[in-house]
Amino acid sequence: MQEFLQQLVNGIVWGSAYALIALGYTMVYGILRLINFAHGDVYMAGAYVAFFTAGALGGLAMGSPAGALVVMLIAMSGSGLLGYGIERIVYRPLRAAPRLTLLIAAIGVSLFLEYSAQLAFGSEPRLFPQLVPARTVVSACGVVISNQQAIIVAVSLALGLGLQFIIHHTSMGRAMRAVSFDREAASLMGVNVDRVISFTFVLGSALAGAAAVLVPMNNPQILPFMGVQPGLKAFVAAVLGGIGNVWGAIAGGLLMGIAEIMVVGYLASSYRDGIVFAILIVVLIVKPTGLFGSPVTDRA
């Protein structure tokens, strides 16, 4: 029981990161009906931005919460900028193109980012510095929670709530919902569709950038291909929760993280990737709209 609770905690921590990345997928899908394959690589880019920022700040960034916050904000801006650029250069000219064309382009962008990063930073893993030294904050009933784990969950939760606020209580959020509902009608009502879509990309990418600072607290290796698996899994999380649905993405991410950690804890770590894709296939066959998704009449 004690071990189960500990695994549950670890799963929630791990899942929070998936949830943050999944939010970007779900927002972009909601608004463009596009699986943004490059999203995982935006996350990777965020990690490199954070890595070099932390390196440049040196001792200033270490150990102090303010320093960590600065690193995170810079990583979020970097990812956001990259997301904006990708949308502006590749996806916008293809907006009227068939969806498969867009999907192939997204795969192309993803590969381009991965291999460019490999070219620029080398394929050697880099060790992310410890922004916040590890310390146990809770130790009850044999369950141990470190301050890093607490930070990961708290920051993810805060960003999720912030996003929810933006979507439901600001005029930009209303415009986003309108564009996702009916792009043409929204544009007739005076919504600047291009701006709204750009904003969505920036927001989603910035969340991935935040995840890129949080995850290395647990797993400090950063690599050019580090975004591939988390990207795929976060996408699965978004589908699991019902793509286009913000709370669905968060719930899906948490479930995915818990499932993965449980498999590692109770079965074998070599099945850890398998469980995710098994879940995906079952969800797609049984309920393609996901747990919280609204029924879609035409998914073509």
Partner: peptide, 28 residues
């Protein structure tokens, strides 16, 4: 078979899942 129910990018992601699953199975 499942592809009958799925179209476009959903099908794409299902086949991706299948490909990765196969690899994981052979690893094990």
């Amino acid at each position: 078979l499942p592809s009958l129910r799925l179209r476009g990018d959903y099908l794409a992601i299902a086949t991706l899942g299948f490909g990765e699953l196969i690899r994981v199975i052979f690893i094990n």
